[in-house]
Each structure stands twice: as C-alpha cells, then as structure tokens.
Design a binder for these strands. Structure first.
Length: 316
DNA sequence: CGTGTTTGACCAGCGC
DNA sequence: GCGCTGGTCAAACACG
C-alpha cells in the first residue's frame, strides 16, 4: 500500500469489518513517551508552535476519568484552532465526552454520569498512581502464551478462567492525544508493533492497536481517526515506557532521567476551546488563566521534558 | 532471517 | 443466558 493510499483512507473492509491499513511514520517526533512535558514549552513556543504547522498537525490534550483509572489528556493544542475543542469539550460535555472516552478506551460511569461539578470530572491528583494492569487478565494472557509455547492453548485458557472473585479490572492510566494530521501513526520516537485492528462502532474509521516493541515494556497505544472530524487522529497511550526512546538515545533526551507518569494539565487550557455552555468550568474560572492566552503555571513547568527534547530537536 | 503487518478467531466485560 | 463490543492472540504473510 502506498503512502498516498494510506492518507486517502480507502477502507476495504473485510467481512469482519476491518480494513486493511498499514501504519505510517511521521516526519516529526511526537510525545509518545508519557514522560514528555508540554509545560516546558515557553509561552512563546505555545503561541508560535514550530514544526506542527509545517506538518499539518495539531495536538490537543484533555483529562478525564475512567472508572478506577484516571485518563489524562492534556489540553495542549499547539495550534490554537478549534480542533482542541473536542478534547476540552470532552471533559465537560457529555456528547463529545463520550466520543473521546470511547476513543480513549471506553465509556463508563464517569462519562455517562459526569460528576456534579465540572471541576470534579477532571482529577489531576493521582498522576503518580500507576495503575497496574489487571493481574487476572494479564496472567491469563501469560498463561495463554505459555500454553501456546507448550502447544496447549486451550488448556491454559480454561485454567485461566478460574479467576479469583472480587478482582476488578484495572487499567494503566491513559493519555489521549488529538492530533490534526493526515497520517494516523505519528512518529514519536518509539517503535511499535501493530497487534490488532478493529472497526469502531458508529465510525467508518478503524482503530489500530499497537504495542511497544521494547522487551518488558508493556506500553500500548491505540490510534483512530475522529468520526466527527476525520482530519483528527486520536492517539491513546496506555502505560509507561520503562526505557528511553530509541530515537532520542543519541540526543539530549536520553540524558534525562525517566519521570513518573506525567502530572496533569489542569491549568493548561485554552479559552477558545472551552465549551460555551460551561461558563463555570475550571477552564474559565482559574485565576491564573488569561481569557485571551494560554497559560503555563509555574508548578507545571517541569513536565514532559522528553517531549521538548525529542519534539523540538527535530523541528527547530 | 528478523521485524512488522494483516486478519480471523477468541475472550472478557457489560447491558438487557 | 445472550448478544454486542472492545481488546487481544497468533498464524500467515510481506518486506528489507
């Protein structure tokens, strides 16, 4: 399949409603690594983002909750167009919220029964809380793999069905990026192996599943195109890389110590992206946020260094 | 041959 | 229990 074919998105669905699509690199480094830090961008850089526009790409982030897990999407649109409204909107508004939540993994009580206050729908307090993958499902898969190696998949699968009661499925924290881009699979410095593709309900665009190829790194990402805005790619990362980006090993980013899961961008918001019908949301009410300009709060200034190093290095 | 993609099948969770 | 959906597996395949 040629690059042009991928960009044009013909969708020859097979009978399982999957289409044939390949992954494609992207000419700039993108913060796949959950350690990257949009807040280390200067205000000037945010107002005048470099690189992204040249590649017809924009990013936006928001944050939301999913059951026990916290979903983090930083509302950091480098291009302050209305694109990011979908992401920010997702925090406060049910329809887009559900859309993005589905994109980021699933809908749930948090999205369908939003908290009473807009602020409460966004939790930034537990960024250090790396939620372990459900041990039962993981063990099951491990058993399946082991069983496969032993040539006895079914046996191990059946065994794995005997799981402890009361175990509740938990997921790694996720970060969803909405990116205005012609290509789906944005280059982010890490190597990914595609392990699945599924049709998305109510969307003509499939969702692709990728796993970090590094050994012992269980970071996954999903890539899908927004149904509402086909020019927007929603990339959802799950988990933390336990290694440096291969693309930055020779660069300064490799010298940076790995960070825990990024603290959240509660205040990294853009008024022009906020839903008009939520005038009391935190986005508007935060005293440090100018109604005209995006702001970076001092206490957020050390986040995501890898993003700067890998992203800016390639585009300045 | 190593690496990555494709894709049919399978499983778990959830709602009804 | 059943059907639907999201997520994953893994054999087959493609490619450099």
């Amino acid at each position: 399949m040629s690059d042009e074919d991928k960009i044009n998105y013909s969708h020859p669905y097979d009978r399982d409603h999957r289409n044939v699509m390949g992954s494609e690199g992207f000419p700039f480094s993108f913060p796949t690594d959950l350690n990257f830090d949009p807040f280390t961008y200067s205000h000037h850089q945010l107002q005048n983002p470099t690189g992204l526009d040249h590649h017809h790409s924009q990013m936006s982030f928001t944050s939301f909750l999913h059951g026990d897990a916290e979903y983090n999407t930083l509302s950091a649109a480098f291009d302050l167009s209305c694109l990011s409204s979908e992401a920010v909107h997702a925090v406060n508004n049910s329809s887009s919220n559900k859309n993005l939540l589905e994109a980021a993994g699933t809908t749930n009580s948090a999205s369908e029964n939003p908290p009473a206050t807009p602020n409460s729908s966004v939790s930034f307090s537990s960024s250090e809380a790396v939620i372990e993958e459900d041990s039962s499902s993981k063990n099951r898969r491990d058993l399946q793999r082991k069983g496969c190696e032993d040539g006895d998949v079914m046996k191990s699968t059946k065994l794995s069905k005997v799981k402890k009661k009361g175990e509740k499925k938990q997921r790694e924290p996720r970060v969803a990026f909405m990116t205005k881009s012609d290509v789906d699979n944005l280059e982010d410095g890490y190597r990914w192996r595609k392990y699945g593709q599924k049709a998305v309900k109510n969307s003509p665009f499939p969702r692709s599943y990728y796993r970090c190829t590094s050994q012992k790194c269980n970071v996954k990402k999903r890539i899908e195109r927004s149904f509402q805005d086909p020019s927007t790619v929603i990339t959802t990362y799950e988990g933390q890389h336990n290694h440096h980006s291969p693309a930055t090993l020779r660069g300064s980013a490799a010298m940076l110590p790995p960070l825990p899961f990024p603290r959240l961008a509660q205040n990294f918001l853009f008024p022009n992206t906020c839903p008009q019908n939520h005038p009391n949301s935190s986005y508007y009410s935060h005293p440090n946020i100018s109604p005209e300009q995006p702001q970076i709060l001092p206490d957020q200034s050390s986040l995501f260094p890898n993003m700067v190093s890998s992203f800016l290095h390639k585009h300045i």
